[in-house]
Design a protein around this nucleic acid. Structure first.
Lengths: 208, 208
DNA sequence: TACAACTATTCAATCGATTGATTAATTTTG
DNA sequence: CAAAATTAATCAATCGATTGAATAGTTGTA
């Protein structure tokens, strides 16, 4: 027999609707209808529509930093650390591009300052960890001296770009991001590209 | 005496509000109030709220392709062409990051299919032009063979990333994207980074 | 065990406010 | 005067939220 968990049902439906229609574009009535719950359940469990949004974000954000920190403390070379971080980051985002779209979208709004700060801070933490890895690599002479923050923008921007508009990669081909096999291929290609890019770009030029 | 152009006032106010609050988050009453026009003027001139949105997009999109095509036909080396395109693209987007945010935001929604297609097609055209430049460079042996589409995602993603979250670059410094001088510095840094990245990444490795 | 007290969950109905849009009347302009 | 531009007033629809009541499940008590 099915475990009726309205709370989870609401979160699931809300995440899907927020992803498709945006926060403002989604009504609490839609969430209720799609989740099979009564409208009041939304306020009963989460206090408000914004409460639902916050809950979704909180659940997703949590865990991001730990994984990252763990890698940064591994016994690996600077390049290995960096590539591992990038691989994890890319995989995580590409596996749930809809959510990433939503976060991106709602975060470019000046609205919802509380959540805005929460996510911003979480992201800032991630940035610092990655920045440190590259800085250490440069100091150790393993990497060329580069504009570290711009390079991070490049890595994150590439991943984000592929997640948000995969058509840039697939158009004119038979690839379809909605097919699991193709999606895996694209993720693989993205990671391979970033590894190649970072390796070529950061490896010191010995013959000059 | 001032030329009273309500139509232009409405467009101006709407673009600012859409940028700050999103399409769904902006009401026609706000647009009217901010532009100093009566609510009915919106429907009188543009038919509907969506009409206003479309008008804004149309005006902005137009002109993008021409500039690009013009460069691609210049008498330049492949690398010079590519760098010029990137510089133009970065400057254009960074000079109006709010608009870019809005386009990004509303385009990741499954809503408004008509505008969606319009912008998508315009962007697809831009992609093809850039792809051709790189392809020709590779064929001519001026560039290393790389994953061209992923590289384009990297370039566009970097620019987009800096435009959308400049704090990634400025945090912990005295730089402020809202100050014109700093903004110019950041644009300069972005372009320099991309030029360095592309040069290092695409230049064939001669010693192997 | 049995019955009362209590808590958590669910519901239909409805709140006042706001939404995008339209109307009909008025003013401005040429 | 006639057309274009502008206005206030109003439309039905929908918004997020709340209400008070009903139901189900748990706990306390004797």
């Amino acid at each position: 027999m099915e475990k009726a968990d309205k709370k989870a049902d609401i979160l699931e439906a809300a995440e899907r609707l927020f992803t498709e229609l945006g926060y403002e574009g989604t009504s609490t009535r839609q969430i209720a209808k799609e989740s099979g719950a009564n409208m009041s359940m939304i306020n009963y469990y989460f206090g408000s529509k914004e409460g639902v949004f916050m809950e979704i974000m909180s659940k997703r954000i949590f865990g991001f930093n730990e994984q990252l920190l763990s890698i940064s403390q591994d016994k690996l070379s600077h390049m290995e650390k960096l590539l591992k971080v990038v691989e994890n980051y890319a995989t995580r985002i590409l596996c749930n591009p809809g959510l990433h779209k939503m976060m991106h979208r709602e975060l470019t709004l000046s609205q919802r300052p509380e959540m805005f700060l929460k996510v911003k801070n979480s992201m800032a933490n991630n940035l610092v960890v990655i920045e440190n890895i590259i800085d250490e690599g440069i100091e150790a002479g393993d990497f060329r001296p580069v504009d570290v923050r711009m390079l991070i923008a490049t890595v994150m921007g590439t991943i984000s770009n592929v997640a948000i508009s995969p058509a840039k990669i697939t158009y004119g081909t038979t690839l379809d991001i909605n097919i699991e096999e193709d999606k895996a291929l694209i993720i693989e290609r993205l990671i391979a590209h970033l590894k190649d890019l970072l390796t070529v770009y950061l490896t010191p030029n010995n013959d000059k």
